[in-house]
Amino acid sequence: MGRDTEGFVVYSENCLARFQTPLKPPQPPVIGKASHHSIELSWENEGYARQGPPERWTIFSIEKMDQKSRTYGTVYVGYSNHYSAEGLEPHTHYLFRLRITSPTGESLYSPPVSAFTTREPLSGKNLHQAVNMNDEEEVNKVLQSGTVYVNGTDKLGLTPLMLAAQKGYTRIVHKLVEYGADVNMKNGSGKDSLMLACFAGHLDIVKYLRRFGATWQSRDMGGCSPLHWAADGGHLAIIAYMIQDGCELDVRDDVSRWTPLMRLSAVSGNPAVASLLIRAGADVNTRDKDGKTPLMVAVLNNQEKLVQLLLDSGADRHVKNEFGSGAAEMANAFGRENIIKLLEERKSIEH
């Protein structure tokens, strides 16, 4: 028993002596791989107590300086020799230090080490922001990175090309097409870049998109064509170019079976656009799914100047819709006094 007791005492004293050996001052953590949100750190753990149960091991802690308070906070405690700091801010400077703690509670700190996260990878969001700001330099930078999908859509379903075409940013449109932007890609409502440019009135972009494969035959979800949208926008130069380029004049949508002239009769009533379409050969007596003509639609929407133009251009005031009503009945039903007068004058001239 005495020998066992003496042996135990000797063992305990040896352990205690080992634990009380002065700690070796630690070197700063070594910076490993860094990304835009993480930094890997490693350190030497050889030569420190690591025998027996874990409570007799040397403890390693990584501390990170808080940028605002300029004080250190512990982000890791354990027995490993590596740690990855996650959730960091991109393109930011950080300071780390290593603390070692012996089984007896003694602690030593390493000098701090500097580390930087990388810039956040360029994304479709960066490209959309650059296009929206008409920032050619930034657009070039993002496209040249080779990491961004040029046809990615924003929360409104617009590609960068659609956005540039809509806003009239010609040089950016050219650059996007150069990098493979799809000129025929459509948003959620079925509109492509050509339709958006036609509606917004950007003739140079319309011509450019045509050169690179945009087609007058494209349709949105309602069956409207680029000419429908150009008529809605009221841009005479674009419509004149479309006519010259062979665009179909009496193309119909899928909902009401309206041609651009009929849609114009309902929406804007623009006489200048209507005159251009009519002179090019648009049918003034075409009918929609309910048998209405452009004249009837113009009467219903109180487009007085357009009614006069249509009558002067050969619109037939005698035509009835599927319910037996004509332009005169519609004008009377809605009390369109000026239009009633126009129709009466036309009637007297015919007789």
Rank of each mutant, 00 (worst) to 15 (best):
65 M>H: 10
257 R>P: 05
303 Q>N: 10
118 T>C: 07
312 D>G: 05
298 A>V: 10
117 T>K: 02
150 V>T: 11
230 A>R: 04
304 E>D: 07
228 H>Y: 08
89 E>L: 14
200 A>T: 03
242 M>A: 06
89 E>D: 13
10 V>Y: 13
310 L>G: 00
247 C>E: 09
305 K>A: 15
170 T>K: 14
22 P>K: 15
261 L>I: 08
37 H>P: 02
33 K>T: 14
131 V>Q: 01
321 N>T: 11
121 P>H: 06
96 F>Y: 10
59 I>H: 08
319 V>Q: 13
120 E>S: 15
228 H>F: 09
232 D>P: 01
234 G>A: 11
274 A>I: 01
226 P>V: 02
326 G>M: 06
194 L>T: 00
64 K>W: 03
182 D>P: 00
80 S>P: 00
127 L>F: 04
248 E>T: 12
327 A>G: 03
307 V>T: 08
72 Y>E: 03
32 G>R: 00
178 E>G: 03
308 Q>T: 11
57 W>N: 05
159 T>D: 04
200 A>L: 00
2 G>Y: 13
210 R>H: 12
317 R>W: 10
152 G>H: 10
181 A>H: 00
44 E>Q: 11
18 R>D: 07
24 K>E: 12
127 L>Y: 04
325 S>D: 12
308 Q>H: 08
194 L>K: 01
187 N>Q: 08
87 G>W: 01
22 P>L: 07
205 I>C: 00
167 K>F: 05
56 R>W: 09
243 I>R: 06
331 A>Q: 02
290 D>M: 09
127 L>C: 03
45 N>R: 14
300 L>Q: 14
193 S>I: 01
219 R>E: 09
93 H>A: 12
243 I>Q: 05
281 G>M: 01
57 W>P: 03
312 D>Y: 09
134 N>A: 09
266 A>F: 09
230 A>E: 04
193 S>L: 00
144 Q>T: 14
16 L>E: 11
151 N>E: 06
121 P>M: 03
199 F>C: 12
88 L>A: 06
82 H>W: 09
234 G>I: 06
313 S>R: 13
13 E>I: 13
76 Y>K: 07
27 Q>F: 11
313 S>G: 07
58 T>G: 00
301 N>Y: 10
182 D>S: 01
167 K>D: 05
205 I>G: 01
241 Y>C: 04
123 S>M: 07
190 G>H: 07
349 I>M: 11
87 G>I: 02
53 P>N: 10
22 P>F: 04
181 A>D: 00
257 R>K: 14
256 S>F: 14
334 F>W: 15
91 H>R: 14
51 Q>H: 13
187 N>K: 03
3 R>I: 14
314 G>S: 09
106 E>M: 09
148 V>Y: 07
277 L>I: 01
10 V>T: 15
44 E>S: 12
204 D>T: 13
17 A>K: 10
331 A>T: 06
71 T>D: 09
109 Y>E: 10
158 L>S: 11
205 I>K: 02
84 S>V: 15
321 N>I: 08
